[in-house]
């Protein structure tokens, strides 16, 4: 099993780096989420139970199908074109992502875990995904890409939950998932509203609203 888990984690990191370098990211974020939802199946402490399978399937449907659908719809409605002028260029983002990854590996080595981790890579991968999500929120201009950043962030937290093995953290995880779910809705509505009011969704132009 650890080989598979490691494989998924490395794929997760690679997709994360790709997301940093891509201008069209919805599918990639969905792929990341789908990859992640396989994780619970592989590392259940008590063998494969219905509960685990249901959770895995649920998050797969949510992250792999529902979110991207919603976002594609938002894109269509708001007629967003892809991110053309990010604050930080795509190549630079990838290099920064690499540095973040190195930092995550260092941090992952320093952080103590309660209990044993499934793999040495879990913690660094989780930290990297969280940090790259935050980076996306900071470095991109469009509100849509920022939503995607939040989703990546959530994926990181999911990995973190997995890192602390077992089924119980799923409760917490589900709570977080709900938050993000709501956030996606809110942002989707907000996108519509911004679009209607300003005819574009450049989040950086919202600062013209301040008194």
């Amino acid at each position: 099993m650890p080989v598979l888990v490691n494989g998924i984690l490395i794929a997760l990191i690679l997709v994360g780096l790709l997301i940093l370098g891509a201008s069209r990211m919805i599918r990639l974020v969905a792929l990341q989420g789908a990859l992640l939802s396989l994780m619970p199946l592989l590392i259940t402490p008590h063998g494969l139970t219905w509960r685990v399978a249901a959770l895995s399937l649920g998050s797969m449907i949510l992250k792999g199908i529902v979110f991207p659908r919603l976002l594609f719809r938002a894109v269509k409605h708001a007629q967003v074109r892809r991110e053309l002028q990010p604050y930080v260029g795509y190549s630079s983002s990838m290099v920064i992502g690499m540095a973040t990854l190195a930092a995550s590996f260092w941090l992952g080595g320093q952080l103590p875990l309660p209990g044993e981790a499934v793999s040495d890579l879990v913690l660094p991968a989780a930290l990297f995904t969280i940090l790259s999500g935050l980076f996306l929120v900071v470095a991109r201009r469009k509100a849509l890409t920022q939503v995607l950043g939040f989703l990546v962030l959530e994926n990181g937290i999911f990995t973190f939950g997995v890192a602390v093995v077992g089924g119980i953290p799923f409760l917490i995880e589900l709570g977080v998932l709900m938050d993000v779910f709501v956030a996606v809705f809110v942002m989707g509505i907000a996108l519509q509203q911004i679009n209607q009011a300003f005819e574009h969704i450049d989040a950086d132009q919202m600062n013209s609203l301040k008194g």
Binding site: L17, G21, Y90, S91, M94, V95, M98, L101
Partner: peptide, 12 residues
């Protein structure tokens, strides 16, 4: 971008 991607893979 592709070449930087190769560099990123190497460093990973």
């Amino acid at each position: 971008k592709l070449l930087v991607g190769a560099g990123v893979m190497s460093s990973l």
